[in-house]
Write a protein that binds this DNA or RNA. Structure first.
Length: 486
RNA sequence: GGCCCCUUCGUCUAAUCGGUUAGGACACCAGCCUUUCAAGCUGGCAACAGGGGUUCGAAUCCCCUAGGGGUCACCA
């Protein structure tokens, strides 16, 4: 096993969204290829926004996607001693200092800077306070924060596996806060302390963190460490090129799951968002991606996510999935529609799998799969109105349906092929094209104009239901339609 | 606004060191297949942001402009 260590460090302020999932995925692909350790860390230093419920959901989503980790979760909220300890060290070394400026004072400085249309940097008011001055502030009841002393000159170089070397002028940075007045660390500090203490070797994270990296690197330098290697992966944007948010529809892994997407499809789709193995292959498994993944081939450009392609991939996986696996994945969707019992028996499950087999070809999501299966369970359906106009209004349709029902009833044995033969000879006898009989029959037994092969449906439904539905359709035509006509 | 990153079909992307009719996938359109709807197959539409260089030759290297994104919090 290699000593490469990566981490995925979500903050539990929401569900795992598609961008976070992709970041986790790239960490996973990278570390699994190299045989290193994948660490999960929960960045929960924001007490107000962090919720425990989200931690469980985050982990559940990762497991559902198949992204398992080796170590953790570590919780920043349980490591607070580490941060204050390191901060204290910086304080005694003179690399950090206490700042007594109030939030209001800071805000007003920021405001005037904005009015004068220049960028605001903390002016270093408390940079060189004397002991007496500090005492005075303390007596006033001020609670200090701790700021890192940033070099006034020089350049900080960030090495990034994807973007090369990115340089920042230290003079553009200010002495930022590492410990808040409530004693908790800020993200920029806690994250650095953790990455160093957990021996993280590669930080693979979203591009939005690139601008913060020089600050973190300066932290590491002050703490006497060298920073790990960075890889800032491009963002995933909404179709309108803006940052992803709720108003763009489904953005979390959980939502995609609820909409009937398979984890393999989601993974396959986001794998291709910002990375490509080269070549023409589009469909591949997590394991296949691990074999070919490299950070160097990750794109620099932000990707816009487009559910059309995801949907196409999902339909592909629905078609190709192992039947038992598909049955397991789709079951909750059937149960939600009330098609299947909470604890289905063996017979019910066998029938269910047969239904899946005949229906899976044309479903793009698991929701559609359940929608397309209702008439296998429920006799009480209405006829598609367009279909009624097309298939039920021709002359003598009701007689035709009754005739077909009679023929089927007269059969010694009943199967899909038997039914097909019966229909063929009936059409021949009546000198009808196959469609003339098949269309109204389809509508009669499913209520719809599209779907699986008619005789496959009959086969599954069985003779009794088929005949029954043919007859009641004939009745419907005589009653409803002829009444209208007269 | 300062700083940083980015720019190939509508979208995701490919194109070893500069030499390609700029390739694939989704979507879209047409045809084939077919009892319907899908699937599948075949074909079509469609891109190097703009302008300067460097070079025999630039999507590829350099510069400028424009556009997009990120970041500048006692959020992460």
């Amino acid at each position: 096993m290699s000593d490469v260590r990566v981490r995925f460090a979500p903050s539990p302020t929401g569900e795992l969204h598609i961008g976070g999932a992709r970041t986790a995925l790239f960490n996973y692909l990278f570390v699994r290829r190299i045989g290193g350790t994948f660490v999960l860390r929960i960045d929960d230093t924001d007490l107000e926004r962090s919720k425990e419920d989200y931690i469980d959901k985050l982990m559940a989503s990762m497991i559902w996607l198949g992204l398992d980790w080796d170590e953790g979760p570590y919780y920043q909220s349980k490591r607070l001693d580490q941060y204050s300890g390191e901060a204290e060290k910086l304080l005694t070394e003179g690399k950090a200092y206490r700042c007594y400026c109030s939030i209001d004072e800071l805000a007003s400085g920021r405001e005037t800077a904005k009015k004068e249309n220049r960028s605001y940097l903390y002016p270093g008011t408390c940079r060189n306070l004397t002991a007496e001055e500090e005492k005075k502030f303390l007596n006033e009841g001020r609670k200090p924060v701790i700021r890192l002393r940033i070099p006034e000159t020089g350049t900080t170089l960030v090495k990034d596996e994807i973007r090369g070397i990115v340089s920042f002028e230290n003079s553009d940075l200010d002495d930022f806060i590492i410990i808040k007045s409530n004693g908790l660390p800020t993200y920029n500090f806690a994250s650095v302390v953790d990455d160093l203490q957990l021996n993280i070797t590669h930080i693979i994270r979203a591009e939005e963190h690139l601008s913060n990296t020089p600050r973190q690197q300066l932290c590491a330098v002050a703490l006497g460490y060298e920073m790990p290697i960075f890889a800032h992966v491009p963002m995933i944007l909404a179709p309108d090129r803006s940052k992803l948010s709720k108003r763009h529809g489904a953005t979390s892994v959980e939502e995609f799951r609820d909409q009937g997407f398979l984890p393999e499809a989601l993974i396959n789709y986001i794998t291709l968002l910002g990375w490509s193995p080269g070549g023409d292959k589009e469909i591949f498994s997590l394991d296949e991606s691990i074999q070919t993944f490299s950070l160097q081939k990750v794109n620099k450009t932000a990707a816009i996510y487009d559910t059309a392609k995801l949907t196409w991939m999902n339909s592909h996986y629905i078609r190709e999935y192992d039947l038992d696996q598909l049955a397991g994945a789709a079951l909750p969707f059937f149960q939600k529609k009330g098609l299947i019992e909470d604890k289905p028996g063996k017979e019910e499950l066998d029938y269910y799998k047969k239904v899946l087999e005949t229906v899976r070809e044309r479903a793009k999501t698991l929701v559609e799969l359940a929608d397309a299966s209702t008439y296998f369970y429920d006799d009480q359906f209405t006829y598609d109105q367009k279909g009624v106009k097309k298939a039920f209004t021709k002359a003598d349709v009701s007689d035709l349906l009754r005739h077909a029902a009679q023929e089927l009833e007269a059969l010694d044995s009943f199967s899909g092929t038997d039914a097909e033969k019966t229909f063929e000879s009936l059409c021949e006898k009546l000198e009808l094209s196959a469609g003339r009989l098949i269309q109204p029959t389809r509508l009669a037994i499913t209520g719809r104009m599209g779907g699986p092969g008619l005789f496959d449906i009959m086969n599954l439904l069985g003779r009794e239901k088929t005949v029954e539905r043919l007859k009641s359709a004939a009745e419907y035509i005589d009653k409803e339609l002829n009444q209208q006509n007269s």
